[in-house]
Design a binder for these strands. Structure first.
Lengths: 106, 106
DNA sequence: AAAACGTTTGGTTGTTTTACCAAATAAGAA
DNA sequence: TTCTTATTTGGTAAAACAACCAAACGTTTT
C-alpha cells in the first residue's frame, strides 16, 4: 500500500467513523428528510446542546453535512445524500448476525 | 426514539464504526476478492500479528466477516459483501469535501 | 512426544473519544 | 444598548480504543 492508497483508505475510514456513532447516525438519518436546525435535533434526543453541536461538527468535518446560518439558527443538511443508501445493507449485516438482532428489524 | 429504534441505530452505528478504521476498512476491501488467511493480511500491512487479529475480531463481532479454521490457518471472508458497494458514495463525500482530498482519487 | 507454525488472548500504556458544564459568541428582540 | 435565544468553544474527567509484547492454544510436522 503506497502513500496515496493509504491516505485514501484513511479518508474513507474517517467518513465511516463519523457515521459510526449512534447519535451521529441518527442525525444523518434525520437530515434525510431535509435540513434541520440544531435545536430541532436537540429536541428529539436526550443529549446536551453542546454534545449535539460537537457531533454535528464531526459530521461536518467528515464532509457528511453542511451548515448554513440563517438568523439565530444554524441549519444542517446532508451534503452527499447517497450515504443513507447503504442502510439496507447495514441492516442486512445485522440481520445476518445474531438472532437477537433480527428482532430489531421487525 | 423508543427503545427498539435506539437499539437498531446503535447496531447500525456499530457496523459503521467497525469499518471506520483504516486497517479494518482496508482488510474488508482485501476480502472483496475472496477469503484470505490472517497471515496473508499481516503480510501486506505494517502491523503486528496480534493487532491484525484483534481488528479482525472487531469486524467479526460486528457481523462484517466470518472466519473458518482450516488446518493451521484461519480464513476470513466477507459475510455480507454489499458493504463494499458504498465505497463510491464515500469517495463522493471525500471528493465533495476539500480540494486537497480530490487528489486522492486521481 | 517435542517442536514449529498460525492465531488468539491478556496485560500495559498512551491516545482518542465522549459527555457534561460553564463561558463565549453572534444575531434578533425589547 | 441591554436582554434573550441559538449555537459553539474550552475544560475536565471517565470510558473506550489502539498498538505492542509476551504468553497461551490448537494443529500440524518431525
Amino acid at each position: 500500500m503506497n502513500a496515496k492508497e493509504k491516505a485514501l483508505v484513511e479518508a474513507k475510514a474517517n467518513v465511516l467513523k463519523a457515521l459510526g456513532h449512534p447519535t451521529r447516525l441518527w442525525m444523518a438519518e434525520q437530515l434525510a428528510d431535509g435540513e434541520k436546525c440544531v435545536c430541532e435535533l436537540v429536541e428529539n434526543i436526550d443529549a446536551d446542546f453542546s454534545t449535539v453541536s460537537k457531533h454535528l461538527s464531526i459530521l461536518k468535518q467528515a464532509g457528511v453535512v453542511i451548515d448554513e446560518k440563517r438568523g439565530k439558527q444554524v441549519y444542517y443538511r446532508l451534503k452527499v445524500p447517497c450515504i443513507l443508501q447503504f442502510m439496507p445493507c447495514i441492516e442486512a449485516v445485522i440481520q445476518a448476525t445474531a438472532q437477537t438482532h433480527i428482532d430489531l428489524m421487525k
